[in-house]
Amino acid sequence: MSEHTATKPTETHGHAHDEHSHEEHHGSMLSHVKPYLIIGAALFVFTLITVGLSYFDFAEYSLFRKLFGIIGVHGMGINITVGLIVATFKVCLVGAWFMHLKQEGSTIWKPLGLTLFFCFCLLMLFLLAHSDPIPSTSFTQH
């Protein structure tokens, strides 16, 4: 939970306190939501960047061909890699600010970390079928 809603354990129900907090926050709406607006704007910009980059054919330029050749990415793969990097960055923005992951404690992070690890395993499933096939049994055979 963000620092705004975390209630001290000693607090009890009651309007007296809530009225108090209301006055405390009054008039500072913009300063509270400013980070969210900035992140929202950044997401808009990065969406446009992703779209723009997809029309830019990296594989046509020898610089990118050489650069991405090092990690074994060729042709269309360069565009895909760049696109996914931008998408991952956007996802991190959403997670860290909109979902308040920046402020979460270990009760959330531990299971979430495990989840991300297993999800990564799932996404890498294709490696199991691709990396080490016995000839003529590979699933790529049509």
């Binding site: 990396s131 096939p133 049994t137």
Partner: peptide
């Protein structure tokens, strides 16, 4: 994947 040895899995995997 130890349930899937019969699927043509190579020695590394």
């Amino acid at each position: 994947a130890h349930h899937m040895y019969m699927t043509g899995m190579g020695p590394k995997v």
